[in-house]
């Protein structure tokens, strides 16, 4: 599959679209292992601030990252809309806590642009591209940057 030069994403890509705070975000669906409802998060102290804690996912202890905190736009509440996006990171699964899941759609490279340095409070360094549709902007996030340990 040939890649688009500007965003380095393949020409056609399937994205999972979700919300974090007021912002619409998207991630490459190929990296998403499953979507899980909210479950009890056990806090684990002395972890980086964006790590909310861990959950028991069918016997596996999975780290939960608050995507709101990670992107710098405020903690994601734990309510009936919140969801956990389970993604693969190296040898483990990591859960991203988000406000809600919107959709899964296939988009083409022409609908995407390189990200600016700041989108509604989210630093451009976390983004791979911006998706424009009608009046809305969706931030296509860079999973590896988000999951990086530092």
């Amino acid at each position: 599959m040939s890649a688009d030069a500007t965003t380095n994403l393949p020409v056609q890509v399937e994205l999972t679209v979700f919300t974090v705070g007021d912002i619409l975000c998207a991630v490459d669906n190929g990296r998403v292992r499953e979507i899980s409802g909210l479950r009890a998060i056990t806090p684990v102290h002395h972890a980086p601030s964006h790590v909310r804690g861990v959950v028991n996912l069918r016997g596996q202890i999975m780290t939960i990252i608050d995507l709101g905190v990670r992107l710098g736009i405020g903690a994601v509440p734990e309510d009936r809309h919140s969801r956990i996006l389970v993604v693969r990171s190296g040898e483990e699964d990591i859960g991203l806590l988000v406000d809600g899941i919107e959709d899964v759609k296939t988009v083409s490279a022409s609908e995407m642009e390189p990200p600016p340095s700041n989108v509604q409070g989210v630093s451009g360094s976390f983004l791979r591209a911006i998706l424009k549709e009608k009046d809305e902007l969706a931030c296509v996030v860079d999973l590896d940057k988000i999951l990086r340990l530092e």
């Binding site: 002395h46 972890a47 202890i61």
Partner: peptide, 22 residues
């Protein structure tokens, strides 16, 4: 525990209790 907790000195892993809590 996952990679994010590597620098936490006070944990030696985690377990799942009978009621499913970690």
């Amino acid at each position: 525990l996952g990679g994010h907790f590597r620098s936490c000195q006070c944990y030696a892993g985690a377990t799942i209790l009978g009621d499913g809590r970690v």
